[in-house]
Simulated scan of single mutants.
Amino acid sequence: MTVSDLPPRPGPPALVLVAHGSRDPRALTTVRALMDRVRALRPELSVHLGHIELNEPPLPDTLAALGGTPAVLVPLLLARGHHVKRDIPEAAAAAQAPTRVAGPLGPHPLLADTLHARLLEAGWRRRPASAVVLAAAGSRDPDARADTGRTARLLAERLGVPVVPAYASAATPTVADAITALRAKGRHRIAVASCFTAPGRFATQCARHAPWLASAPLGAHDAMAALILHRYGQARETPVTAAA
């Protein structure tokens, strides 16, 4: 048998970005731009998109279209919670081919890098009596709150000012309450860091509370694309979810 007679080596698993979904049309545009960043960094990968709700294509449809192609699902979510722990693994288990599930994007230093960059773009500079509220979606899951707290600490290390995690729903403190508490401690220059993957209702609501400035959502940043590929690589080393 010659080298040319050998069967072709299988390619890497497909990378499926799993977005939450939003009624805000900017969200889908942002996620697609982030996909383009990922493809530019790893052109050999087959990159796809699936949504948990609200947008097309739904994640089960994306996996069905892949058929027998192995895949790694990378949640575009920033902390652990119900979607990461239940919904996405259940979709992976129902796939036709071996499918792995990566961890959420946060906490991680690359996520903090992106938050820092977005704040700088919005005009943030360290000043006396400054602080930051890290605005996240919120979850009743204590692991999700722990992850957001860790992200806040990573961002505080970069900024050199207090960073307080706060939430749009399902957890406390709210963004407004966090701002009030910081003001009571003499922090008068308060920025809101948007810990959301893409624009949407929660990101917009949280930004409105900013007494100084609010950063844009994380979006199609190079560090986000690098973080997605990092999670993809980590997941490839984990056991495969058995196909149904």
Rank of each mutant, 00 (worst) to 15 (best):
5 D>A: 15
187 R>G: 08
243 A>V: 03
95 A>G: 04
135 A>S: 15
220 A>G: 06
86 R>K: 12
208 R>A: 15
156 A>E: 13
149 G>E: 05
139 S>H: 00
146 A>Y: 01
55 N>C: 14
193 A>H: 06
154 L>R: 04
34 L>W: 08
205 Q>K: 07
154 L>C: 02
212 W>F: 00
168 A>W: 04
14 A>G: 10
123 G>C: 15
227 L>F: 08
69 T>C: 10
31 V>S: 06
227 L>A: 09
35 M>Q: 15
64 A>S: 13
17 L>H: 03
157 E>P: 05
228 I>S: 05
215 S>L: 03
91 A>E: 11
227 L>E: 03
87 D>N: 08
160 G>C: 05
96 Q>H: 14
168 A>S: 15
54 L>I: 15
39 R>D: 02
31 V>H: 05
156 A>S: 14
208 R>Y: 01
67 G>F: 09
109 P>L: 05
23 R>H: 13
147 D>S: 03
40 A>G: 08
177 D>M: 04
74 V>E: 10
114 T>D: 06
182 L>H: 06
179 I>N: 11
5 D>P: 03
134 L>R: 02
24 D>E: 10
74 V>T: 12
22 S>I: 12
75 P>W: 10
91 A>D: 05
94 A>V: 03
77 L>D: 02
79 A>R: 01
32 R>S: 07
12 P>D: 14
35 M>C: 14
130 S>I: 12
70 P>H: 12
146 A>P: 00
199 P>G: 09
73 L>A: 08
149 G>Q: 05
155 L>Y: 05
54 L>M: 14
34 L>E: 07
128 P>C: 08
119 L>P: 01
79 A>K: 00
124 W>N: 08
47 V>L: 02
32 R>W: 07
64 A>F: 01
226 A>R: 15
29 T>P: 00
35 M>E: 14
116 H>M: 08
226 A>L: 14
131 A>V: 11
132 V>H: 04
125 R>G: 01
182 L>E: 06
72 V>F: 06
153 R>G: 02
